[in-house]
């Protein structure tokens, strides 16, 4: 399934946050969305995921979802959004229970994603017992349990410390290698974008418009190799050059919304 945005605009009351955003994410592609804070990145993601009512333009998803897909547009949240009263397995089950799967298939899917995300030993643990990294692994396991057509990741690693972030990035690359899900990945962390995305969509300050779309020339699975380090660093510097002044302005802005 692809994601196509055509002239998408959005305003909270009188405050425009997105203006004429058009781009598309191809089947199996990972697009990172970066930009200074308050540029409407999360708004855009919520529009794509149907959590916000579309106002201007059109978001469409051409193409068929993969077989066994229960929830085509699936989120991974920055704050994990786990139910604290449910165990790890229970949190994954929440995404499956209302789909009328047989008990056997449901438990099969839960075990499969828990194993894939390294959570097999924590199935009965409660979220409060887990580290931040493990909690987000639950969030990711819950998302892939429904076999999504499009993963919508809203700063999934931003609440984690730098070391955990490194570990989870490796996990994400491994999961994508397996699932080949179309992914829209919102982040403010440029190294995450350069490390994980096939292309990087750079948004301007509010109201967010597309500033540039940059393709990352190195395949995702080869980016950890040292011979690519210089090229990737150069790309990251280029992206920083694109948003630095606006980030400075955004930083000094007084919030009145």
């Amino acid at each position: 399934m692809q994601v196509v945005l055509d002239g998408v605009g959005y305003a909270y009351g009188d405050l425009p946050v997105l203006d004429g955003v058009s781009f598309s994410v191809a089947e199996g592609e990972t697009a990172a969305l970066i930009g200074p804070s308050g540029c409407g990145k999360s708004t855009l993601l919520n529009l794509v995921g149907g959590l916000l009512q579309q106002q201007v333009g059109r978001v469409s998803t051409p193409g068929a979802p993969p077989a066994g897909c229960l929830n085509p547009l699936t989120f991974v949240f920055q704050d994990f959004a786990l139910l604290p009263w449910r165990s790890v397995a229970g949190n994954v089950a929440l995404a499956l229970e209302h789909h009328g799967l047989g008990r056997k298939e449901r438990e099969g899917r839960i075990n499969e994603v828990l194993t894939l995300c390294g959570l097999a030993d924590f199935a009965d643990a409660l979220p409060r017992q887990l580290s931040g990294g493990m909690r987000q692994r639950v969030g990711i396991a819950r998302a892939i349990a429904v076999k999504p057509a499009v993963l919508l990741m809203d700063e999934p690693l931003s609440a984690l410390d730098a070391q955990t972030r490194e570990l989870l990035m490796e996990d994400l690359v491994a999961i994508w290698a397996r699932e080949r899900t179309t992914t829209l990945y919102v982040t403010h962390n440029l190294s995450e974008a350069v490390r994980l995305a096939d292309k990087v969509v750079v948004l301007s300050r509010r109201p967010g418009r597309i500033k540039r779309v940059v393709e990352v020339p190195v395949p995702v699975f080869e980016r950890h190799k040292l011979d690519h380090a210089a090229a990737l660093q150069a790309l990251q510097d280029e992206l920083w050059g694109l948003i630095k002044t606006e980030a400075q302005v955004a930083d000094r802005e007084v919030q009145d919304v």
Binding site: G49, G50, L51, F75, F77, A81, L94, E97, V146
Partner: peptide, 21 residues
């Protein structure tokens, strides 16, 4: 709110959200 939005994003019905979240 984020838990309710999470449940909505996974397509839970309103009664299911009330009961489970």
């Amino acid at each position: 709110r984020n838990l309710i939005r999470m449940a909505q994003s996974f397509g839970l019905s309103t009664p299911a959200i009330v009961w489970k979240v």
